[in-house]
Amino acid sequence: MTPTAIFEPIGHESLADAVVAQVEDLIASGILKQGRKLPSERDLAEMLRVSRPKLREALHVLEERGLVTTQHGEGTFVAALTGQAMMPALLALYERHEPAFFDYLEYRREQEGFAARLAARRATKADKERITEILAEDDRAWRANDPAASREADFALHAAIVDASQNATLIHMMASIYELTRQGVFYNREFLKTIDGTGERLVQQHKELGEAVIAGDEARAEQSAFDHIDFVEESFRLGIERRRRETMAEKRRMLSSSKPTPNS
Rank of each mutant, 00 (worst) to 15 (best):
E8P: 04
G11K: 10
G11M: 09
H12F: 08
E13K: 14
E13V: 09
S14E: 14
D17C: 09
Q22M: 10
V23A: 08
D25W: 07
S29E: 14
S29T: 15
K33L: 15
G35N: 09
K37Q: 07
P39N: 05
P39G: 03
P39W: 04
S40E: 14
L44K: 10
A45R: 12
A45E: 05
M47Q: 10
R49H: 12
R52P: 08
P53F: 12
E57S: 14
V61H: 08
E63L: 09
H72V: 15
H72T: 14
H72Q: 13
G73W: 03
F77W: 02
A79S: 05
M87E: 13
A89Y: 00
L90S: 03
Y94H: 13
E95G: 10
H97W: 13
P99S: 06
F101H: 05
L105S: 03
E106P: 02
Y107M: 14
R109Y: 06
A115Y: 01
A116T: 02
A119Q: 05
R122V: 06
T124Y: 04
T124K: 05
T124D: 04
K125H: 11
A126T: 12
A126Y: 09
A126N: 12
D127E: 05
D127G: 07
D127N: 15
K128P: 00
K128M: 04
E129T: 07
I131R: 04
I131D: 00
E133D: 15
L135I: 05
A136N: 07
E137M: 11
D138R: 14
R140H: 11
R140N: 12
W142H: 14
R143Q: 14
R143C: 12
D146G: 11
S150Q: 12
S150M: 15
R151W: 07
E152F: 09
A153D: 02
A160I: 10
V162K: 13
V162G: 07
D163V: 01
A164F: 01
A164W: 00
N167Y: 13
N167D: 15
A168F: 10
I171P: 06
H172N: 14
M173N: 13
M174K: 11
Y178L: 15
L180W: 03
L180C: 10
T181K: 02
F186P: 00
R189S: 02
F191I: 01
L192Y: 02
K193E: 09
K193M: 15
I195K: 02
T198H: 01
G199M: 08
L202S: 06
V203Q: 14
V203F: 13
Q204L: 12
G210A: 01
G210M: 03
A212M: 04
V213W: 02
I214H: 05
I214K: 09
A215H: 09
E218A: 15
A219M: 10
A221S: 01
F226E: 10
H228S: 13
I229L: 04
I229C: 04
D230Y: 02
V232Y: 00
E233Y: 05
E234A: 01
S235K: 00
L238I: 05
L238H: 05
L238Y: 03
E241Q: 08
R242D: 03
R244C: 00
R244S: 01
E250Q: 01
K251L: 08
R252G: 06
R252C: 07
S257E: 15
S258Q: 07
S258F: 13
T261Y: 06
P262Y: 04
S264C: 12
